[in-house]
Design a binder for these strands. Sequence first.
DNA 1: TTGAAAGCGCTACCAA
DNA 2: TTGGTAGCGCTTTCAA
Lengths: 352, 352
Amino acid sequence: MTMTTLTSVIDTRQREPTMREVATRAGVSIKTVSRVINAESGVSLELAGRVQSAIRELDYRHNTTASNLRRADQRTATIGLLLDDIANPFSSALHRAVETVAQQHNTLVFAISSVDDPKREEEMVHVLAARRVDGLITVPASRDGGGLRYMQRLGKPIVFVDRLATFHDADSVIVDNRIGASTAVRHLAHYGHRHIAFLGDMPTIWTAAERYLGYVEGLATEGIRLDPAFVRQDIRRIEMAEEAVLTLLQQEQVPSALFTAQNLITMGAIRALQKLGLQHKIALIGFDDFLFADLLAPRVSVIAQDPTQLGQVAAELLFARLNNDSRPSQQIVIPTRLIARGSGEIVASGQQ
Amino acid sequence: MTMTTLTSVIDTRQREPTMREVATRAGVSIKTVSRVINAESGVSLELAGRVQSAIRELDYRHNTTASNLRRADQRTATIGLLLDDIANPFSSALHRAVETVAQQHNTLVFAISSVDDPKREEEMVHVLAARRVDGLITVPASRDGGGLRYMQRLGKPIVFVDRLATFHDADSVIVDNRIGASTAVRHLAHYGHRHIAFLGDMPTIWTAAERYLGYVEGLATEGIRLDPAFVRQDIRRIEMAEEAVLTLLQQEQVPSALFTAQNLITMGAIRALQKLGLQHKIALIGFDDFLFADLLAPRVSVIAQDPTQLGQVAAELLFARLNNDSRPSQQIVIPTRLIARGSGEIVASGQQ
DNA sequence: TTGAAAGCGCTACCAA
DNA sequence: TTGGTAGCGCTTTCAA
């Protein structure tokens, strides 16, 4: 009897009721049930009522998956969202905005972290393709966005956000990274700085490269010589940034201002400056705003971008494409703005 | 001819190649293709090779959706994750941890924000049920988790994280909220505080209620009278918290210490204290750690919890259930810890 | 080792 | 207004 007991335990896992079962219970055909569920016209009130009752009694849930499989438009009502790291505040704000728009279209979102690894990115594109997502919003980790060509060939729309992928004829929503970075540098220069350090992420990342270009442009505009000793790249985490700033400030030739080109790098730099007690001596402007920027001492000046707007615009663009908007592909640039709070307005000391 | 042109434009949207097409091209049956794709044994090297070539030539992608529909185990290799707000740093860290574990099981995650609205929560549970997710990890917005009974009846595992849902016999992973909160209060009391304010979220949220109880317990332990004038609840956003602290500190009877029971509330409180210039006068302990807590002046003391660990443990529990782990339901409590950084160690002034 | 046929749960199409 | 039948792309079962 042990077996029986075991079996009965397992059997508490009931099967989901099917449309056919609803039909049988309501005494109608399966097609009538389908009509009621999809709110198609042409079902008598009486039958509709019986179907509704049967649905309630069985606690039937429509199987979206099976439904989509058969549907003519071959849509799954899901989209993919490929992000650097869903835990990053920038990414999660963007994700939230995408979710909000998607919800208005009864669509669910598969969000995935690429961790800026092109190999993983490509793998994930394939996974999403296998799930037959209707479209993709991606912060590309690689220059080609990781095999996205495949999705495009199938006519599935792709929207690039935050970073440009080089060769694709696809929509993109980005921020004016170059202008933002050069604005930061020029702002620092106006406060007397001639030794401005750049701290950035891997230059293979489009935004990192653009911001570096903006830095160089800013220096050039101000007639400042680019000094490689003041440039640190490939910074991936907060601790790396902290370490980089610490060593930077122990060189012979020390910068009087820092431009940190990404939010985590800004955080690491602040840690280092506080550790050295230099936060009121060395100027700092960070790219990307963050929650506590105005509560630190000094308050942190930033080039602010709006991840929520990025996400919203990107999602709206994607759904427009899904509704057969066939205008030529767009490249939307959302402006950044300098928020001067104090750290970027520290005047250069006489050291130079 | 206009029609023709239009048609040809539309036709650039190719259809996905099917298994049947691969079979035809390879000159085998569809079942053989299926075998190769699912790595089943018993296919000759020759046929396997032909199939692989055909797959490459057609750039075929397996249709996970159709595959799962027919599969015996009725699995979709997706799970649902119902969170308060995916943009909240706590939630997104938890999400990231869940994603990592899910990935090891080749499973995708549908993350959804309930925005702590029980009605929306229930709606979303139904949406996820309609997608036939294999299981659900949820930070319940309501006491019953929003119609989760339904999923349970189907034998789909549910894991509650961060908050307990009252009547369900389901797994849960939580934090020792009560102990954490009372520890905070007692810590403040040890620094001489007798007027300790509580600022919390809606008491319908389990954690908010628990932390309030911990606050009350802490007061009781220290023999401090509970003063309703020092209690503020239903605080949902940073601005509300800021406002609440501002008015609290303009009362006749002013608290000498604050216990802020959630991360956004802590942020708002810090804003208010800085605005009033009281951040070094009034003690503060916040529930939940945050990135800049140790960079502010004063450094912010917190009751730290680990969202990554919560997410990981919850996900591992869920997948254990999916692998037929049938032990009685578990309730895992993860300890919090007090991190004393300065703001919680401000000594009570002579005002009392 | 290979394949034909049935069927997963649903929608499309057409006939009654 | 209603329902039968075919079929979405795949796996399962069973026979060859």
